[in-house]
Design a protein around this nucleic acid. Structure first.
Lengths: 237, 237
DNA sequence: CAGTGGTCTAGACCACCGG
DNA sequence: CGGTGGTCTAGACCACTGT
């Protein structure tokens, strides 16, 4: 009995978590300090141990405390510096800016995969790929240049699909159920085609994200997304 | 009764999670497909509903499924997988490369915070800051250029501290207990001092990370870390 | 308004590991 | 060995939201 309402903000694991967090941020429990055990905290807060456990577990996942059996929980000396970034779907990102999403195909062809791509994706020699370049714009302003390679072995339909009216991303999302991914962020000097599409000078420093995707060990696609000048990928925590 | 051992790999929320994940990865439950309810799954797996809930909650946190009351759980059409990037301490990163970590102070001074910095950090007009530039090298090779601003109002000790032998980062970690952070990744064209320190041409495209830190709402420090050419921030999931 | 997820509780057993 | 976190269970009430 005595179950607590979740929405009143006075109990529940969220408020326990917030209370503990406050003690840490305020320095009440300084770096390296030992926190009381779960049982003690459960008593103090008037909740069950499971509730305290949930709060503590989340704090540990967020890198604020260390937990070890028998040793107990301690405030991390240096909070783990981990940033979480979401790479949004362009269409959504542009929509979120309140601008009209526009798509334009820049060029495409089918060819044997170049050596660097084979190395990056783990493709066999002679593997054929579809190479698609397109531009995503926010209204009249170029926003992101997409340079994508799709394995034809993995996705034979890619050979016939026209990317004239919608980007490969959205088609791939529907075609590939789930995937293993490698993501990189990097800086590039704008190459000719990229510069032209984004309407910047060749050689200008641009932010880019690369993503390689596999499905059950089979390489599917590799893409470089090059952003308009000044773009930042930002997160807060 | 009938409690299950956690370590045998045959039961527990981990195995439930793995089993569900497998069905998603294999396409048994394709994009957008509805999953059975928690009660049904609990019956199928022979565990309690709480255990299924834990598994499903984690899958949702990881962006693989969507969960909504009444509507049930569905496989996400486009898995929203957030990439987690750890921004390592330079010293550790260089050590991990097997190279010798070297530190060199490039320059420093105290001044009134420029307008752009006040805007970014939320500093008051006339606030004074310490500006430190230094270079982190992997053996003889320049690795990362650090350009840091420290609020003297927040950390008066920064006024007197010499950064001649160790970087500001390590000093700050010890000085500030916990902090709120904003991180950005971006591309920059190398400016004169940066280019000189990293031994690259001015204007070369370089990858950079910026981090602004507050403590209890008070701005503490802002730093731009500019990496050697070719640097990538990579993660896999 | 009814079904599904969200959360809490009380009690229990277990795994790990510091003393 | 004994304490602490890790996890499970059975049951319960509640919040949200689709129909």
């Amino acid at each position: 009995m005595m179950t607590q309402a979740a929405g009143d903000g006075k109990s529940g694991f969220r408020s326990v978590k917030a209370a503990i967090l406050k003690r840490i941020e305020s320095g009440f429990w300084g770096p390296g300090a030992a926190l009381p055990g779960e049982v003690a905290l459960a008593g103090d807060f008037g909740v069950s141990r499971a509730t305290v456990n949930r709060a503590m577990r989340e704090l540990a996942e967020e890198g604020l405390i260390d937990r070890r059996r028998k040793a107990g929980s301690r405030v991390r000396p240096a909070p783990r510096r981990e940033a979480r970034f979401v790479i949004p779907v362009v269409r959504d990102e542009i929509a979120a800016l309140g601008a009209e999403y526009r798509y334009a195909l820049v060029g495409q062809y089918e060819a044997a995969a170049p050596a660097w791509l084979r190395a990056r994706m783990g493709l066999a020699e002679g593997a054929r790929v579809r190479h698609v370049r397109c531009l995503h714009s926010a209204g009249p302003a170029p926003f992101q240049f997409e340079d994508r390679w799709i394995s034809i072995d993995a996705l034979p339909e890619a050979r016939w699909h026209s990317f004239g009216t919608a980007g490969p991303t959205e088609w791939l999302i529907a075609a590939v159920p789930f995937s293993e991914v490698e993501v990189s962020f990097l800086a590039v000097a704008a190459e000719r085609e990229t510069a032209s599409a984004l309407r910047v000078e060749e050689g200008e420093a641009l932010f880019a994200a690369e993503r390689t995707t596999w499905w059950q060990g089979t390489p599917i696609t590799h893409v470089r997304l090059t952003f308009r000048p000044g773009y930042r990928m930002t997160t807060r925590y």
